[in-house]
């Protein structure tokens, strides 16, 4: 009986674990290996260079730039989609007519690809007839042809705005799911106790949304670490690497300049950052579980 179970476990786990092992786990470890070589992507001879690649990271101004940009991106991810998503969720949850239509509208961008989203926003930022300049000119009466994506000062933020537009819907539905999970009798107690809407939201709803918040924040941070496609199409990391992120920098070093060894070192750093975030996330989830279940 027990032996049967073990046989089935093995038989059923081998296919997924084999695929996962060969195409995810093993490459992960080989990344570590390549990160201490100077492989260029094609030639058969490459040699061990120790921690040179990692040392290079510290002397690479482009890396520093990308790292700072990644942090900015993460912060923005925590603030904008989380905040806006929460507000939208609270508004939609207040039994306003047409709630499901609103929900779909805010959610729609999620099913678009980052490429399409990027392209849409390229048009928005288009200097001559893009929506943004049109709107600004309409309000100020001026004649602005500002090239948002071509200026180092604005490129990164312009991309982050586009990205936030897409991610807000995701944050919103997660918050909405969190709101539906709040037992209605708790809300009824608030009404009976005579709490105002503000008091109800601050003292009951928000604390109970803590699990959802953990998820939204973690997802935002993790997704911002993955942000690549949208950057690729909107700025390609430019101008002058002003909107580079770690993911972008890694791609450029590895597949543009064929510094695969150095690229691997960057990917190891990315991995470590992701690992730290995931650990923090899982721990928060467990803590939240302990409190709320």
């Amino acid at each position: 009986m027990e032996k049967d179970k073990t046989l089935w476990r093995v038989a059923m786990l081998i296919p997924p674990l084999a695929v996962f092992g060969i195409l995810v786990v093993w490459p992960l470890f080989s990344s570590f290996y390549y990160s201490i070589t100077n492989w260029n992507g094609f030639s058969a001879d490459y040699r061990y260079v120790g921690f040179d690649n990692f040392l290079q990271i510290f002397h690479d101004p482009l890396f520093t730039r990308a790292a700072v940009n990644t942090v900015i991106w993460m912060l923005a991810a925590v603030i904008v989609p989380t905040g806006l998503g929460l507000v939208l969720a609270l508004l939609i949850d207040s039994q306003v007519p047409g709630a499901s239509v609103f929900k779909s509208i805010f959610y729609l961008p999620i099913c678009l690809s980052a490429i399409v989203v990027g392209q849409i926003w390229v048009w928005i930022y288009q200097p001559d007839w893009g929506l943004l300049n049109t709107a600004i000119n309409l309000v100020t009466g001026g004649n602005s042809h500002f090239a948002w994506l071509a200026k180092p000062g604005t490129a990164l933020y312009a991309v982050i705005a586009a990205w936030s537009w897409q991610q807000t819907g995701l944050a919103m539905v997660i918050f909405l799911a969190g709101l539906t999970a709040i037992p209605p009798d708790l809300i009824e107690v608030c009404h009976i106790e005579g709490a105002s809407s503000g008091q109800r939201i601050r003292q009951v709803v928000l604390p109970l949304l803590r699990p959802a918040t953990v998820v939204v924040v973690a997802l935002g941070v993790i997704n911002s670490l993955k942000g690549f496609d949208i950057l690729y199409i909107m700025t390609g990391g430019g101008p002058f690497n002003s909107s580079d992120t770690l993911a972008m920098h890694m791609y450029n070093e590895s597949f543009k300049k064929y510094h695969m060894g150095y690229g691997s070192a960057i990917s190891v750093v990315l991995f470590l950052i992701a690992l730290a975030i995931i650990f923090a996330y899982f721990r928060q989830l467990r803590k939240v579980d302990e409190i709320y279940e």
Partner: peptide, 8 residues
């Protein structure tokens, strides 16, 4: 991030 396993 998929970049982590891109090169291998």
């Amino acid at each position: 991030p998929p970049q982590v396993i891109l090169i291998p």
